[in-house]
Design a protein around this nucleic acid. Structure first.
Length: 660
RNA sequence: GCUGGCAUGGCGCAACUGGUAGCGCACCCGACUUGUAAUCGGGCGGUUGCGGGUUCGAGUCCCGCUGCCAGCUCCA
């Protein structure tokens, strides 16, 4: 028979398997046959197009990870025969497997499981595929209720279920020891690596946690074990190093170490206070944003944090999002001695969004087309009653400040306005040091949306056009739009490759309607404006966290809490450095002279731990030359720079928002 | 919200199976000070997150609350 192998036609004996074919290539773990992934042990069909899939490519790695999940499940049932199997799909960086067990897994359990897994890997068990009928499968797996449910119920939408049952035949995989004895089996669509030995020592169990069966809060909770798996020990080590690096950069840790902010228990979960050093960073972030918004034609407004319920009834928030709001404060109610209400009270709410307030400003008087586009900007603090389990440092807080603006414009102005807004947003993000972006375009869900087809189409086409013109990658998110309008969002990659959703620009065809916003057109008719919501940081707190992690606390000079620390080699040079510091201070530089009693090396160490961008050192050599020496955060040094030049360099670094 | 884990001076940690809280850093005082990541000595600081309970005795055990961590679910 003729088979195409990696693009080359070959004559093969009927019955040839992938194992025969790729016998000399140890990195091949599975094969692609006419586009589908197959176990190597399967016989090749005639006229098939076959490709080798190595463990280093995404598909191969997925198979490796899924196979590791099987080894975990076998180990769990070895240790605890009563454990019932859930599902065990590969995920980013690894895999998980869900189990129904009487006792949750402890860290000690995980260690024991790793040992058991190691033995299974060393045994070199092969994964043997077996096609069965539904009845056979139900009979063989009668003791596995979750597997039976997968076999008998519609698995539509069930998280991870596709790895158990494919679209075609039902298959069971036997794990077979070298002697031919079946060690374990699992309902699985496959494919798998040929032998457990392929896993080597490139895997590790990470943690256990509860997870809902089929991902629904209504279903019972299973115990999920997470693991990571890589083609080699080296790659596993590199992955763990990446995790350690992320932990070192964690803004919650740096927030404490650098004295930037805290979350006092007395205030409550998810409510931050910024300390003086964090305050400087935040103030600079806001000041630059404010300046750029002024230049871009935004007008600044201020609105209160609390409001009567009526406003959020008008906006619709109380109908849809009451759960996400702080509960109402009931005010002004009066009762007589018998407890009867003599005066009806009022409910007040903390605002979860600023837009209704801005709409009231728009509506406060008649508006002319001549005023449009009207851009109202506010650093607006909002409060959202996030569920207790989701609060996470500054990135998911209960009180936070949005750099929020609402632009009211005519349909004709919409395109220009969206274009300039996206360019403005991208330019500004770059100024803060984020350089690597892609865009996501969330489009209409026809099931649930308001506004005419025409305006949706126009707005979506405009957003797409604007996105494409930016030259950035534009990822579609079909049906991802809110019901009131399409959205384009900017995703940024940070210094260690993580992506964060940043700015969003969102059209809204709903609120202008609900608030009956109008302007007078040139023909004296009343027209409804289009409303654009946009935030650059999203939340200042969250953006603060992202920048902290992006820079690992080593902020560029303009943002650094202390920009210059001057350290005399000995007390005799205190005055010399104080004069230089005074000159820097006069130019607005945040500079300190370390005149403490500590010895010189200790002062260097302290400045270094504080991640101060410029350390200026002066001793006899410098003073004699009318110079200072720079020491940078990486330990590199620039010695005996003339004082005037040193000052210019520092001032220039701040003005250009340079990283040093 | 759910499941599991955790909570000891400002920070990081210690205290065997319940026996009466200790260390480093930071901070304060003193001495010492001339070139690149911890000078030496002394001192201050904790009713062990909060509230109950068991016990002769609780940081250690039990219950409730608050907060934190991981994951799930959620994120206008």
């Amino acid at each position: 028979m003729t088979v195409t192998i990696d693009g080359v036609e070959r004559e093969l004996e009927p019955g040839t398997t992938g194992t025969d074919l790729f016998a000399d290539r140890r990195d091949v773990v599975v094969m692609r046959v006419d586009g589908a992934l197959w176990d190597l042990a399967r016989e090749l069909p005639a006229a098939a197009a076959v490709e080798a899939v190595t463990v280093s490519e995404p598909d191969g790695l997925m198979v490796l990870r899924h196979s590791t999940a099987h080894v975990l499940a076998q180990a769990v049932q070895q240790v605890n025969p009563d454990a019932k199997l859930g599902v065990g799909p590969p995920i980013e960086n690894g895999f998980y497997y869900d189990f129904d067990v009487a006792q949750p897994f402890t860290p000690e359990d995980l260690k024991a499981l790793e040992k058991a897994m190691q033995r299974i890997v060393k045994e070199g068990q092969s994964f043997v595929r077996r096609e069965v009928t539904r009845e056979q499968a139900l009979a063989e797996l009668a003791h596995e209720p979750f597997k039976c449910e997968l076999l008998t119920h519609d698995t539509e939408g069930a998280e991870g279920a596709s790895v158990e049952i494919g679209e075609g035949d039902i298959t069971i995989y036997d794990n077979v020891r070298r002697g031919g004895e079946v060690a374990w089996k699992d309902l699985c669509r496959g494919p798998h690596v040929p032998s457990t030995r392929v896993l080597q020592n490139g895997w590790s169990l990470m943690r256990s946690a509860a997870a809902y069966w089929k991902g629904s809060e209504k279903n019972p909770q299973l115990q999920r074990v997470y693991g990571t798996a890589w083609p080699s020990k080296e790659e596993l080590t590199a992955y763990k190093e990446r995790l350690a690096e992320a932990e070192r950069r964690d803004h919650r840790r740096l927030g404490v170490e650098m004295d930037l902010f805290s979350f006092p228990d007395e205030i409550g979960s998810g409510l931050a206070v910024f300390h003086p050093k964090g305050g400087v960073v935040r103030m600079e972030m806001e000041a630059y944003s404010r300046r750029r918004h002024v230049e871009e034609g935004y007008e600044f407004v201020y609105t209160p944090h609390a409001t009567k319920a009526q406003l959020f009834q008008t906006s619709g928030h109380l109908d849809w999002y009451a759960d996400g709001m702080y509960p109402p404060m009931h005010m002004d109610e009066e009762r007589d001695v018998a407890g009867n209400v003599t005066k009806q009270g009022q409910d007040y709410y903390l605002k979860p969004m600023n837009c209704p307030m801005h709409n009231l400003i728009f509506r406060s008087r008649g508006r002319s087309y001549r005023e449009l586009p009207l851009r109202l900007f506010e650093f607006g603090t909002v409060y959202r009653n996030e569920k207790s389990g989701v609060v996470h440092g500054l990135t998911r807080a209960r009180g936070f400040t949005q750099d929020d603006a609402h632009i009211y414009c005519t349909r004709e102005q919409m395109k220009d306005e969206l274009t300039t807004t996206l360019n403005f947003v991208l330019g500004l993000l770059k100024d803060y040091g984020l350089e690597d972006f892609y865009l996501e375009l969330s489009t209409r869900n026809p099931e649930k949306s308001v506004g005419s087809d025409e305006i949706w189409e126009e707005a979506t086409a405009t957003l797409r056009e604007v996105g494409l013109e930016s030259g950035l990658e534009l990822v579609p998110d079909p049906g991802g739009a809110a019901f009131y309008g399409p959205k384009i969002s900017v995703q940024a990659r940070d210094a260690i490759g993580r992506t964060w959703q940043m700015s969003t620009i969102q059209l809204d065809f709903n609120l202008p309607e609900r608030f009956e916003l109008e302007y007078t057109a040139p023909d004296n008719s009343r027209q409804r404006p289009v409303m654009i919501h946009r935030a650059l940081f999203g939340s200042i707190e969250r953006f603060f966290a992202i920048l902290t992690e992006h820079y690992a606390g080593q902020f560029p000079v303009w943002l650094a809490p202390v920009q210059v620390r001057a350290i005399p080699v000995a007390e005799a040079f205190d005055g010399y450095l104080q004069d230089i510091a005074a000159r820097l201070r006069a130019k607005g530089v945040r500079v300190e002279v370390d005149t403490s009693d500590e010895r010189f090396p200790k002062k260097i160490r302290t400045a270094s731990k504080e991640k101060i961008p410029f350390v200026l050192i002066a001793g006899g050599d410098d003073a004699d030359a009318g110079a200072v020496s720079f020491r940078f955060r990486d330990g590199s040094q620039d010695n005996q720079v003339p004082v005037d030049e040193a000052i210019d360099r520092i001032v220039a670094a701040i003005e250009t928002r340079a990283q040093v």
